[in-house]
Design a binder for these strands. Structure first.
Lengths: 256, 256
DNA sequence: CGGGCGATTGATGAACGTCAAACGACGTGG
DNA sequence: CCACGTCGTTTGACGTTCATCAATCGCCCG
């Protein structure tokens, strides 16, 4: 998976990135929830100003550290994570282009997890005051943010359930399908094919296994002809086959 | 653990429960976040009207079903859960007395998980309109709800991380300590001793293992002298010993 | 060309699931 | 009062899933 890292961003026309294109991905994401007026769209584009480059493996927020700004992911993949005393890391959620990652803990207590770039990222720091101003004046945007948050919570529940119930094969296919579907939703990939700049170790920390086991599981998936992860690209070849693969050890129904 | 089910509620003076006592536990919970005025307190007590009894294992909200009211748990233990096609169940979060469980999905999509009583419960259904009325008029209560939600999210992240990183022993001790601490926080137990009306199967569905393994893990904990779960009561005898138990297989620090 | 990172492979063992049986504490109906 | 059924706990035997350790390989980059 080394090299060949596709940028995980829209192809830009011309060599210089146009200043407007950065915010497009946020608009694309939120417009999936609520119709947005032209005014809403330009206001959202303002949030993507002040974008900064973040190399892979760099922390955006450390555990225990407070912040007064949110992050908007423009390119690349970041994550929320927790690390324990022994150095093991669990990834809680993936942050893909178009995701706005709030760092609000409402002064409840210490910030309890970290945020880090998994691949090289372009992010924009959005001061919370600016965010609140936007919310106060653009009800459609507010509603879209609310729905995006609810969706993130639903994904988190799904993730937790998968960790508790599913074997490694299904946990892995779920994560990979989730990434593809989310990228597809903001127009950054086709329906069955996307760049995937994650290492097998990253995937292992997503699904709570060792990287060795991820490797073997990926081989199993390749052999089954259902998906393929090679050279930094993910290809899902047979979605129906995936479900069959995951369900095919299912015991007969519990009773009656 | 059969029989001897302590009611998991404040001892009431006299035989007839006084109508006000029901809401006390909600006030106790929220007052832990924000100082509440007498007016706030009486308003909160109103929410506990219309309490209903729910037998163990009964669903409060089915997967896929929408609701226009929230639940307030007054007595007993309920949970959010997900069930897969094979009949396996993963518990996402525990709902203890004083917890207000919103069922708002904001019309995002279908309700994606279920809510069920694990032990016999007293719950109050709170119409969403009533809740919104309260929020509009009592800022301190609003802030307390917000903080309670943030705390629940933090717990959910912790839970997810534990599933991914920790062995069964630590996952189990974490859940048990969490229950004790939360009950203690609302005055329903001492600091090291509480009623625990859950089966080993329930605990298994919390930590993502089989009930057989929960049984053996509990025996290990009993033998170690750190905690004891017997006759529906949980006793934590040695918190420091617990951490030592969980960390005692810790490898030397990763690098340097 | 060497160095480093990540992918791959094999061998071994620990953690945990599954199945099946027995056991204990109830509550119920006779 | 006792026999019986139910539910939850406990135990043993066995198989699977997965972690761990260590070595190798491929690839890119300086």
């Amino acid at each position: 998976m080394t090299g060949l890292q596709a940028p995980l961003a829209r192809p830009r026309n011309g060599t210089a990135p146009s200043p407007d294109s950065a915010g497009e991905v946020l608009v694309a994401r939120l417009a999936g929830f609520v119709p947005l007026s032209p005014d809403d769209r330009t206001a959202l584009s303002q949030l993507a100003r002040r974008e900064t480059y973040v190399p892979a493996h760099m922390d955006l927020v450390h555990e225990g550290e407070a912040t007064d700004s949110a992050f908007l992911v423009l390119e690349g993949i970041a994550c929320r994570y927790v690390e324990n005393a022994a150095g093991a890391r669990q990834i809680l959620a993936l942050l893909l282009p178009g995701d706005l990652c709030d760092t609000d803990l409402g002064h409840l207590t210490q910030w309890d997890h970290g945020i880090a770039a998994l691949s090289p990222c372009q992010v924009a720091r959005v001061p919370r005051t600016k965010l609140e101003g936007l919310i106060a004046t653009h009800p459609a945007v507010t509603q879209a943010f609310r729905l995006a948050k609810l969706e993130a919570e639903a994904r988190s529940r799904n993730w937790l359930a998968a960790l508790g119930i599913c074997r490694a094969t299904e946990r892995l296919t779920r994560v990979l399908c989730e990434i593809l579907d989310r990228l597809h939703a903001v127009g950054l990939s086709g329906p069955s094919d996307c760049p995937l700049p994650l290492t097998q170790m990253d995937l292992a920390e997503c699904i709570g296994t060792s990287s060795v086991h991820v490797n073997r599981t990926l081989q199993e998936l390749r052999r089954s002809g259902t998906m393929e992860l090679k050279g930094g690209r993910l290809r899902i070849l047979d979605r129906a086959g995936l479900e069959a693969l995951n369900g095919h050890r299912r015991p007969p129904l519990p009773n009656v």
